[in-house]
Design a protein around this nucleic acid. Structure first.
Lengths: 127, 127
DNA sequence: AATTTAAGTTTACGATTGTAAACAAAATAT
DNA sequence: ATATTTTGTTTACAATCGTAAACTTAAATT
């Protein structure tokens, strides 16, 4: 929970997969990402290794294979990334962030309604 | 409008200031940021120069000084950054992004109401 | 058992980034 | 005019990142 290592753009791809599908073998990671991302198997291996060194993921041997699993949680990584993004781009002003995304990104009716509900909750919660 | 150069975290600080206060001298940039960011004047100069080389900013001479101004617009940079962040962290799912920020970030009542209005507009707009 | 293959480890290499020192040129102060 | 200060330019250097090849070891195939 303490200090999250810095995770690069490419490494985020790996992490997302590991969070979603852990425990997972390197083989599965490679099959899943090398096409989608246009990475050679070696490249994927490098990313996996860097994440190991950074302590972002771990593994345990299962037969001759490694099964990788996250060490840092998705939640805390996302939170850290949110914060850094919000600071960097919006100087910490959340409402600007929201209006920008609202303007630029398409949302389905369902998504809008869900957000409205969330906002209501948020308002209620604080009374 | 075409291709935005990649702007690093430190460079974003410079850009934000230039967008806000252009035309601006290096001296003003340095005074404004070296304290706030704990950067030496030289470091700030390096960032300014890199932004020049990347074509993100330009200058015109005014006497012996340079007056810096943005070349890439704030809007397009923010948009690019939004997109890359949304992709990297949320795999493009805006609604997830929203719920996360809503959960973690405090919002004033006014901000919430403004967002609700925006959502209403967004909904109306699409009918 | 010997050879091929698969999986993990080490090394590589150029680009970018954060951090600045060193240098040059021009303006200001003495 | 000369020295000093300011401002812009060039060079530096270690860390990270994207990209992968080379090497090693263990397992699977023949």
């Amino acid at each position: 929970m303490g200090d999250i290592p810095r995770i690069s753009e490419a490494e985020w791809e790996i992490m997302k997969l590991i969070w979603k599908s852990s425990p997972i073998t390197s083989d599965e990671i490679i099959s899943s990402l090398s096409d989608k991302m246009n990475w050679s198997g070696q490249t994927v291996k490098t990313f996996i290794n860097r994440l190991l060194k950074k302590g972002a993921i771990g593994f345990e041997k299962s037969g001759r294979n490694y099964l990788y699993h996250p060490i840092v949680s998705e939640k805390e990584c996302i939170k850290a990334e949110n914060k850094s993004f919000l600071e960097r781009v919006y100087d910490g002003t959340v409402s600007m962030l929201f209006s920008n995304f609202l303007e630029d990104e398409p949302l389905t009716d369902k998504e809008i309604e869900k957000l409205q509900k969330l906002l209501e909750e948020k308002k209620a919660e604080r009374i």
